[in-house]
């Protein structure tokens, strides 16, 4: 079975984030060449990230990231010049078992009864086919 691959994130067609030059480029030239950053650091607006990845899905296995490159560009606070460019690939990433605990939220869950009531009146009122009994048409046969 052929893997179905999907490409997501930053499109590095003509210009590639890696060839941003330290000291030469500024925030405006980077934004002109690459467009607005994929993400910026949480508390430091002067660190930009450009990121893209390719995911592959084979049959029923969970989609797996097969290629990823992330480029972190740091700018000087006042002169807005590029001070540092570092790029990372898939092998720099760490495999993390994501924590399963979740902070609880509020809100009324929809009860099963509520949903069933909504379905009243949408069923067929016709008796089933008497052909149901024929082997091959029985409950449990391949649907």
């Amino acid at each position: 079975c052929a893997p179905i691959s999907s490409y997501s994130g930053f499109q590095a067609i003509e210009s590639d984030p890696k060839d941003v030059k330290v000291g030469v480029d500024t925030k405006s030239t980077v934004r002109g060449k690459l467009g607005s950053p994929s993400a910026t650091s949480t508390f430091d607006p002067n660190v930009w990230f450009y990121m893209n990845q390719v995911k592959e899905r084979v049959a029923f296995r969970r989609p797996k990231v097969v290629a990823r490159n992330v480029t972190a560009i740091a700018f000087d606070k006042d002169s807005e010049q590029v001070t540092d460019v570092r790029s990372y690939t898939l092998k720099d990433g760490k495999v993390i078992a994501y924590n399963t605990r979740e902070t609880p939220t509020r809100g009324r869950e929809m009860t099963i009864i509520e949903q069933m009531l909504g379905a009243v009146g949408h069923g067929t009122m016709l008796p089933r086919d008497e052909e149901e009994g024929v082997p091959g048409n029985r409950p449990g046969d391949r649907r």
Partner: peptide, 8 residues
């Protein structure tokens, strides 16, 4: 509505 309650 995505449910059916059928009675016949």
């Amino acid at each position: 509505p995505t449910g059916e309650l059928s009675f016949s």
